[in-house]
Design a protein around this nucleic acid. Structure first.
Length: 467
RNA sequence: GGAGGGGUGGCCGAGCGGUCAAUGGCAGCAGACUGUAAAUCUGCCGACGAAAGUCUACGUAAGUUCAAAUCUUACCCCCUCCA
């Protein structure tokens, strides 16, 4: 099945699809998305080499793997040959930080800016009150205004390292759709905008269809999300002259709605551009780990852990991620593609360094490197270099006779005493790189100022400081 | 409003009076092997307890029973069909 779709694709070049006129817009199924962009080497080549555009932005965006599908590609390409174009991307404000899953569109906008265009970041202060139902199995919880405000601030600060904000021609702008959505009046809105939407068409969108066929409920509230997102595009076009909307491939239906609304209502052509969803080579959504999402905010995830996330990506993903999330030149990455086996570790370090430098500043790297070599380098490395791992302070007087179980629980490394005991019994705990058991007691010889390196498995570490 | 189906541990999904802290799968944790990768294999995977064991859990609340996730009743929520 994989194979046949591969053949079919190559006979039916992607360009054809993208060249389709608006009325012929068609979605590519979700399964084939992974195929086209990552798993299928033939398609990968098509994406990287076969596409040559007039605009430098599209050339680089597609070469790096940001391009999934678009409306009228030729016209958009032509449009982008001039500098200073506006393109927007909407964010839900359901959490107070963005995570690694948001990085594709963020880096896409970064590229947009690099090529002299102006990214607009649309905060969904209004639409978050509704919740995007696309492909989601459960309805979003409805947030209060205060929560939304708080999230909005958090997201803003997440974005700052990636883009240059300001009023210049290619400087990013930030807008909030609550500014217009909150003021909408129902009947006038229905008359001016609602009449352009066909329910027949809307229920045909994959995003809606999956909800309907899987017997999930789709409330009228959620159903309207699409219409409001389309209206956002309309507003940004009339108010600012924005003619491109970016988004993940799951946003395709919503984006097309906006493109169509503007065409029907104003007779003008605007463009939609989607990026592929980021799937790791083992088929998981990027950015989800045991501990939860890989947050961009330093408050939720220390730069050290952020770095480690990239350091530990799958072999098969390294090159792809270098293209997407670093500023390293295309040619240079192309030369790295042949690297195999253990040497990939060097590329992972390069990847981790570059992404972390962008997200947290290059200054953050030296402490991370010190800690890393302290933990993973020569055994018995100087623990004072372990500046980036969590600390647990223990008074000398209490140190006597305290069990590891207590330390593990109190420091938060383990969720319960049982959890800590299981870990110990499984041989997963080391003190100063030596396996410890349940009977371990802190040696009587320790004095204030000493420290112990407590490890849970190979990757979770805690510095116990005696005071 | 009527008829039917359903709500089980992070998720999926068995169980349908005692042998159920609840089969199985996924996810997760640890160990082995490695390269801080993947794959594979092994162990663990509610809380407390050194252990025996105790407690808390199968939508909520009452009840029947020596005994309930399993039966009864009421309520809440979800889905389907009809009006």
């Amino acid at each position: 099945m994989e194979k046949s779709s591969m053949v079919r694709r190559s006979k039916f070049p992607l360009r054809k699809i993208h060249r389709a006129t608006l009325s012929e817009i068609r979605t590519i199924s979700l399964e084939s998305a992974g195929g086209i962009c990552y798993k299928n080497p033939v398609a990968q080549v098509i994406l990287r080499n076969a596409m040559k555009y007039k605009s430098s932005f599209l050339n680089e965006a597609s070469a790096r793997g940001f391009f999934y599908q678009s409306t009228n590609l030729d016209a958009m390409d032509e449009f982008l040959t001039a500098k200073g174009r506006l393109g927007y991307l909407g964010f839900d404000v359901t959490a107070k930080s963005l995570h690694v899953g948001h990085l594709i569109p963020i880096f896409l906008l970064r590229l947009f800016q690099k090529h002299g265009h102006r990214p607009i970041l649309l905060m969904g202060g209004g639409t978050t009150k509704i919740g995007d139902p696309s492909f989601k199995s459960a309805a979003r919880p409805i947030l209060t205004d205060e929560e939304i405000q708080e999230n909005l601030q958090g997201i803003k600060s997440c974005l700052r390292p990636f883009l240059k904000f300001g009023d210049g021609k290619s400087e990013a702008a930030l807008v909030n759709n609550a500014d217009w959505l909150d003021r909408l009046e129902y009947v006038p809105f229905l008359r001016e905008v609602g009449k352009y939407f066909s329910i027949n068409r809307m229920i045909g969108f994959d995003s809606v269809k999956t909800k309907l066929t899987e017997n999930d409920s789709l409330s009228f509230l959620e159903f309207n999300y699409m219409i409001l997102q389309a209206y956002d595009f309309y507003r940004l076009w009339t108010d600012m002259g924005c003619r491109i909307q970016f988004g993940g491939q799951d946003q395709w239906g919503n984006i097309v709605c906006g493109v169509e609304l503007i065409r029907k209502k104003a007779g003008n052509e605007v463009f939609g551009f989607t990026n592929p969803l980021l799937i790791t080579s083992d088929g998981k959504k990027m950015g989800k780990t045991a501990a939860g999402a890989v947050w961009l905010s330093e408050d939720l995830l220390p730069p050290y852990d952020f770095w480690q996330y990239w350091r530990n990506v799958n072999d098969a993903d390294v090159i792809k991620l270098l293209y997407l999330f670093t500023d390293i030149e295309l040619e240079e990455i192309r030369r790295m593609e042949s690297v195999q086996g253990q040497e990939l570790n060097d590329l992972k370090i390069l990847l981790a360094n570059e992404v972390t430098a962008i997200a947290h500043g290059r200054d953050s790297l030296s402490a991370i490197h010190q800690t890393t070599s302290g933990i993973f380098g020569v055994a018995g490395g100087d623990p004072s270099s372990l500046s980036s791992i969590p600390r647990y302070h223990l008074e000398r007087s209490k140190a006597e006779g305290i069990s590891l179980v207590d330390i593990l629980v109190e420091s938060g490394e383990c969720g319960s005493r049982g959890d800590a005991k299981r870990l110990l019994r499984g041989g997963g705990v080391q003190v100063n790189d030596r396996q410890a058991d349940e009977n371990y007691r802190i040696p009587e010889t320790v004095v204030a100022g000493d420290f112990l390196k407590l490890s849970c498995g190979k990757k979770r570490h805690l510095l116990v400081i005696i005071e």
